[in-house]
Design a protein around this nucleic acid. Structure first.
Length: 279
DNA sequence: CTGTTCTCCTGTAAGC
DNA sequence: TGCTTACAGGAGAACA
């Protein structure tokens, strides 16, 4: 499941492979992938003859820049892009194909069809639902610790679902949120406004580190990429708790537990990440 | 307004 | 073996 680091890796790959390319035509095989007020028939028509200027990213959204349009693409769980020669047969689960003028295709594949593409007039992408309400990018420069603390103080939700909803800080998904909470030694069910200043400080640092390290790791694997831009979602940087149920905690040896928090599989160390401070 | 639950999808794994 | 059920989860809609 692509989170911010994987999405950034895909963005870089797209930039490298198809920036500057012109679109000859577009095929859409699953209409619901194309969301927003511009439906798939118009989508295909409007992009025909357009030129891909470049790629941007905000949170987990990839933004395609055309001359007059922006296309906002979210991979959700399993979306991926591939660049193939146009003569190559389409793989199963191919839902959108951008035929390029140079004989290649940019293809979107998505087993579960959760991903979405939205075409908007250039400039309107920042006011789209989803992007408009995003919190800051999780970097030292943009993610302010004091603001983070103040925001958490106003929230009575458990910290994990709060971090997943993208409004406080952008980019965390189920994997890296578990990793960040483990690194900061905070239990996923802690109520946000119960976190002490030093805990928030640790969490702030952990989020920047976990996502930053993963972006770097993605940045190093990208060089070996030929044409598959979504497999980036499968690299995982030495995870400590995610998917480690029953495996000894790297700090204390206690088996990692897996519970459900807000319907999501949640991994943590019950000894390192206490729910009550005095235990 | 805030916080929670449901829905979209299909492949894989577990259970009987 | 073969069928059924549970599970994976990002984000937006629906609901309390």
């Amino acid at each position: 499941m692509p989170e911010l680091p994987e999405v950034e890796t895909v963005r870089k790959g797209l930039e490298k492979l198809v920036s500057g390319a012109s679109i000859k035509s577009v095929d859409v095989y699953w209409d619901r992938i194309i969301s927003g007020s511009i439906a798939s028939s118009e989508f295909k028509q409007l992009l025909t003859g357009e030129k891909i200027i470049g790629f941007d990213r905000r949170g987990k959204y990839i933004i395609f820049h055309f001359r007059q349009w922006a296309m906002v693409s979210h991979l959700r769980m399993e979306g991926k892009y591939e660049v193939e020669d146009s003569s190559k047969p389409l793989k199963k689960h191919t839902h959108v194909v951008f035929h390029l003028a140079d004989g290649r295709d940019l293809r979107y594949l998505d087993v579960r069809k959760f991903g979405r593409m939205t075409l908007v007039p250039l400039g309107e992408e920042i006011s789209m639902t989803g992007i408009r309400l995003l919190g800051p990018e999780p970097t030292e420069e943009t993610f302010d610790e004091t603001t983070f603390y103040n925001n958490l103080q106003t929230k009575k939700r458990a910290i994990k679902p709060l971090l997943l909803d993208q409004k406080i800080v952008a980019g965390l998904g189920n994997i890296y949120v578990d990793e960040a909470l483990f690194l900061a030694k905070i239990h996923p069910l802690r109520i946000a406004n119960s976190l002490k200043k030093d805990e928030v400080s640790q969490l702030h640092k952990a989020i920047i580190k976990v996502l930053g390290d993963a972006v770097e790791a993605g940045g190093t694997t990208i060089r070996s990429y030929q044409n598959a831009l979504g497999e980036a979602g499968t690299f995982q940087v030495n995870l400590s708790v995610y998917g480690k149920k029953g495996i000894p905690c790297i700090h204390c040896g206690t088996p990692i537990e897996k519970i459900k928090v807000a319907q999501r599989g949640t991994h943590f160390c019950s000894k390192c990440q206490r729910l009550a401070a005095d235990q």
